[in-house]
Design a protein around this nucleic acid. Sequence first.
DNA 1: CGATGGTTTGAGATATATCAAACCTCGTGG
DNA 2: CCACGAGGTTTGATATATCTCAAACCATCG
Lengths: 232, 232
Amino acid sequence: MSSCDQCVVRNRAICSALDAGELDALNVIGRRRTLTAGESLMWEGEESLLVANVIEGVLKLSTGTEDGREQIVGVVYPSDFIGRPFGSTTNHSVTALTDARVCVFGRRDFDSFARDHPGLEHKLLERTLGELDRTRRWMLLLGRKSAAEKVSSFLLEMTERLIEPNCQVGVEEPNRRLTLPFSRQQIADVLGLTIETVSRQFTRLKAEGIIDLPSRREVVILDSEALIAEAG
Amino acid sequence: MSSCDQCVVRNRAICSALDAGELDALNVIGRRRTLTAGESLMWEGEESLLVANVIEGVLKLSTGTEDGREQIVGVVYPSDFIGRPFGSTTNHSVTALTDARVCVFGRRDFDSFARDHPGLEHKLLERTLGELDRTRRWMLLLGRKSAAEKVSSFLLEMTERLIEPNCQVGVEEPNRRLTLPFSRQQIADVLGLTIETVSRQFTRLKAEGIIDLPSRREVVILDSEALIAEAG
DNA sequence: CGATGGTTTGAGATATATCAAACCTCGTGG
DNA sequence: CCACGAGGTTTGATATATCTCAAACCATCG
């Protein structure tokens, strides 16, 4: 019996391109893996041995310079694909921000399976094109936006990414509360800022009544109009 | 007779996945187009109507904010693919930096052709994955590098991209001369800097004997060791 | 309760932006 | 052929956003 049957991302991940039989075949070469927050699945520069689907949790993709500066180059959520198929080296580290569950495949196994299943490759292509669009939009933020705009843009992106998938009740409420899967330092590493600058922007937004900060990891958007204006 | 026969990027573009017959079929839905430097092929936010292969020339992909700040999010060279297949809107403008020749397709025509030719989709996937890697590496530069590091990294990237394809003679010479397809302002828009900062970095590198600047658009790398060190 | 790690706040330093002027380069027309 | 003008570029002086360094603060957990 295939464990894909009960998979919560079954219909959203690239696997949705496959029928029951194909899914069984894919399941043979894959296995589940649990990650605890802070644990890494692969490292920058390493040989590309694994690819995976995210089932649950949030993970970061990051690169760094020799002297320890870090830049988070992507954040992945349930149903997203991670790793570098059809390539020999991994260009960024993948680390769990929250506890996470992933479905991993040997890269070579996955490559040949994918080549035999054009529908799967097509899904992967669509996903990669979307990721490229998102990444390029982030370049405008990194290259041209002020700290105030960066932090506000970040909060808006978080509301989109975090509220939709688990959409329980009250999505249309103007007051939105979110629990960030990031520390202040990680937010700084996403935005290309220092932790102090991020912190100051948070306190400023709070002082201006645009957000509230009930605890370190929680943010409530009080005035999303104003936040959008701040994001430039 | 298919005009693809004499196409100079025939073996490097995604078309290389196709045999003679398939190429004929693709050729039916495509057409050549010439662009003069400064001319745009598509605009940010516009409906995605076209995709294309670059045959000759250099083009930029760019986005901007309401108030006129611009960020170049990609640069494409001969054999590269441009446009957004399988999507409804174009996320960035595409503008020729030099005179250019491209091979354009209606997006919908291309989409359905691609879906019928898994080999073509595979090539496109590999290309897109590579572009995503390159883009993410650029994020580290935008978010975490100093102006000095940015300009030096830019020059190194240019030597790689510009010297290889036309590789005439003397590739192994330590003194490399390149003609930039960018104005100073465009370099600033690639690096997320102002034109003045870019200019100052150029003159500094020249003063330190690392490069020479025979003319506005030309750069000679005198000491590539030092340049690599500067790039961080 | 005290230690620990993350966060906020403060004061000062600095890289880069901004504003302004001088300077080339190149094409045009006298 | 030279003078002129226009666009792009360099250089200079100053402003400022963000970083850096340092201390205080606050939660959490033993």
